[in-house]
Design a protein around this nucleic acid. Structure first.
Lengths: 194, 194
DNA sequence: TTGATTTATTACCATAGGTCAATTTTTTTG
DNA sequence: CAAAAAAATTGACCTATGGTAATAAATCAA
């Protein structure tokens, strides 16, 4: 399958493009195979790209001054991932991105992105809507962090990411929920009992 | 001052418009005076609009099943506010929005917004960038909630919203930080002692 | 397959922050 | 300005979650 077809069929499912537009897309995106355990991005690096996950699983995490990891986001098939704060402002990453399950990605640079917006205006709509959904889901997460107990957050997580639980380590989930692995263990035990 | 001029000078400071575009903007936005303590939006209501804050202070909060309030966002001069999850998906509000200090707002409906995007494409860029910044700031908040203690979060808050602290009640800040007013009191006492 | 390494569980104690209730301070209203 | 209402503080006690450490289970690599 040509990369043009692949892009159009995986990333931009609901859009139609002219031949020239497809060419342009194919030139802007690069396909990437990423093995499990590899780091896609490290804190301190300049962030040029964002990545579409065609297959596999990754996570974005922040390492605090005490060295503890905090998972900000998981990304599976059909999600986008980057250190967006850095990507948007063309600055250095605060976060790390790790590949949790062998992944296939399509990457595009911010620069190419801006050019595409100019040349294919419908992409601006497409990405604005994507941002809106991402924003809404972050907002839900903030509410969940404020209003729910650890075990409620765990249940929300399992419900929201049903396909992820198998792929990730307990300490990934714990660091996403903002608790220790020990607490997660206890919570699960309680839930089985309860 | 005409509403056209007002809009262009307050909301869209860095953009230039043709006469017709300004007309269109003026027709799409409505100016609103909102007194302190009034509710701009209540959970359960259909969300049609988003609001630009020209002056004053508002907050978005969620009321959990136990009746506790959780402040998701403050908005002062130059910020936008709405229940964005509901606004984007044209659904019912989960959040409430309360006016904390007498406010002057400009509101625009989602419908008019989408029309404007079609007629004035540069607005799509403008709002995409706004979304990007909002997204980045939510991401920071998530990290802060995961990685920081209550007193660290309080210091970050004071630092990030230096002008808001005077305007809001302690219980607003506490509910933003995810703690009780009692804890906030204790934290402040500790910080003064040093 | 087996030993080595990584990950998960459990137990015990410590602590940040919550709850309830009383009191003081601040703000609002007539 | 005084009385009433709202907000903030404080204290005593409680609970959820954290930290440390030991053990068990699972995964990986030779």
């Amino acid at each position: 399958m040509s990369i043009e077809t692949e892009l159009v069929e995986t990333i931009f499912k609901n859009l139609t493009f002219t031949f020239e537009e497809k060419q342009l897309l194919a030139q802007s995106f690069k396909k990437l195979n990423l093995p499990k355990h590899s780091l896609l991005l490290e804190a301190g690096q300049q962030v040029y790209d964002q990545y579409f996950v065609a297959d596999g699983c990754l996570r974005t995490y922040y390492i605090d001054p005490e060295g503890k990891e905090h998972t900000v986001q998981f990304a599976i098939e059909d999600w986008w991932i980057s250190d967006y704060t850095a990507f948007f402002s063309s600055s250095k990453a605060v976060m790390n991105i790790e590949c949790i399950q062998d992944a296939i990605l399509f990457k595009i640079s911010k620069e190419d992105m801006e050019l595409l917006y100019l040349k294919i205006p419908k992409l601006e709509s497409f990405f604005r809507k994507k941002m809106e959904r991402a924003f809404a889901s972050f907002q839900k997460r903030i509410i969940s962090n404020l209003a729910q107990s650890a075990s409620e957050r765990y249940l929300s997580f399992v419900n929201f990411y049903p396909n992820i639980e198998q792929n990730v380590k307990n300490y990934h989930i714990a660091s996403y929920l903002g608790i220790t692995t020990q607490s997660l263990s206890r919570i699960r035990k309680e839930l089985v009992k309860g």
